[in-house]
Design a protein around this nucleic acid. Structure first.
Lengths: 253, 253
DNA sequence: CGAGCTTTTGACGCAGGTCAAGAGCTGTGG
DNA sequence: CCACAGCTCTTGACCTGCGTCAAAAGCTCG
């Protein structure tokens, strides 16, 4: 297990005017007054090391978080250990809404890399809606946005072939990371193991590996040392959208 | 194609104090003032016959709906016709939030039975948040609640066997319908065709049929004339939660 | 250097897909 | 009132994408 405190333990907390949230469409037009209100609610920051839980299935009325830095994912596990990853969380994403609005947290959240979170008390939600309806509106936007991610993943898992699924996921993450300004040319950080990919796509680990190798052989991607490089994004995209069978006709390399 | 106007065309519109929404947890404590506000926003009612679209993929800034009576479902289709049903909609559910908050409607909504909807203008959402933050809060609750349904379905499609998936779906719908007070003993109306079940669970039509027959042979359910009867809900539930393989050992009849 | 990840690859089996065809039901029109 | 078109449901035969089992190789960290 890694140490709980990241090496840079002395760094000061991020003020809300530095918050990555500001870059998001929903939060683009936050006024200074609103920002002060948010800052007033903010309890503290919390660091969670890679692989450690942020929220556990079954938690009640937990705190609310905003992901400031790092990657995480939402998942659900069955009694016998099978795990389904629902979606990945990147800086700016909101965490803990379900456990707060509904009775219990149905899904767990685990850190994929070391992560820092902005912490709000669990009972902050209603005062926020009351005092700043615009911010409540933004929370609703974030919820709808996350639902869209889950929708898309469900379509993949339910109706796409393994090749299509993997292509979709990589494109999707690539674009999200790039949109956050974290891309370096046509390459982005990629902290997922193949195990995560498998659990997100409803595939076995072995078949995920074979599919990745196949995409690699097709020169559609490079994946090493935690970086993902998508050379021909457009062709990968067309692969994701179309039936895998049509491709079998062509030589794979 | 069925006639657009249902037989009982002359019936008057439902006042908000009659609205099925009132029975939902989120709307349980709506004050008379809030109710009047909602009533003031309500534009009209809309009837949609079974099989007809309520919302199309690609619609922009559509109206907002509340489902008053009947069943519907949210779905997404791929270019080549594969369809994934994301979740089913029952009276009290909110429709059109995504298309309204985000730019475009990514998912279609189709009526499963004849349906009546309560119509609100697309630009009513923000005024509602502003004037009645409690109601905005409720909208957020509904969004989080629907996300939970999609989450659960994704877990099924990604990680459960066909037998488990079908069992989960039937139990889930049974409970929802019963919670709405629409059950008759251990039987509920069930307007889905096997095609809908297949598209919701990411299975083929043929395999869905075989799985249903198998459950029928196990005396876990009766399905005929649009009614679903679950005799032994508890045993079906244990079947849904556990690995299908454990069952193979026992005689199937 | 060994324990425990992660990635790879081969061999093999099966759950579930595909193809085909027929039966039952309902609505429609001649 | 029957014939026919078009659903929905069933069932059989066959096939394959993906899962499972096994084993080994590379990496990382203590």
């Amino acid at each position: 297990m890694r140490p709980v405190c990241p090496p840079t333990a002395m760094k000061s907390e991020i003020a809300c005017n530095q918050c990555p949230l500001r870059a998001l469409p929903a939060f683009a037009s936050v006024t200074p007054e609103q920002r002060d209100f948010i800052q007033g609610m903010k309890v503290r920051e919390r660091s969670v090391p890679a692989q450690a839980p942020v929220l556990r299935q079954g938690d009640k009325r937990s705190e609310l978080y905003t992901l400031l830095t790092g990657w995480a994912f939402r998942y659900q596990t069955l009694a016998d250990g099978r795990r389904q990853i629902l979606n990945f969380l990147l800086p700016g994403d909101f965490i803990g809404l379900q456990g707060n609005l509904l009775d219990v947290e149905r899904t767990g959240v685990e850190a994929l890399t070391d992560v820092t979170l902005c912490v709000f008390p669990g009972d902050a939600l209603w005062p926020l809606f009351r005092a700043h309806p615009e911010l409540g509106f933004d929370v609703t936007w974030l919820c709808a946005h996350e639902k869209l991610l889950v929708d898309d993943n469900l379509v993949s898992v339910g109706r796409r072939s393994a090749l299509e699924r993997v292509a979709m996921l990589l494109i999707h993450l690539f674009k999200r990371v790039r949109a956050l300004g974290l891309a370096d040319g046509d390459s982005v950080p990629f902290p997922l193991t193949q195990h995560h990919v498998a659990d997100a796509l409803g595939l076995s680990l072995v078949h995920t590996n074979r599919t990745l190798r196949r995409l690699h052989a097709m020169k559609m991607l490079h994946l090493e040392r935690g970086r993902l490089t998508l050379g021909a994004l457009a062709s990968l995209q067309s692969l994701a959208d179309y039936e895998a069978r049509e491709l079998e006709d062509r030589p794979l390399i």
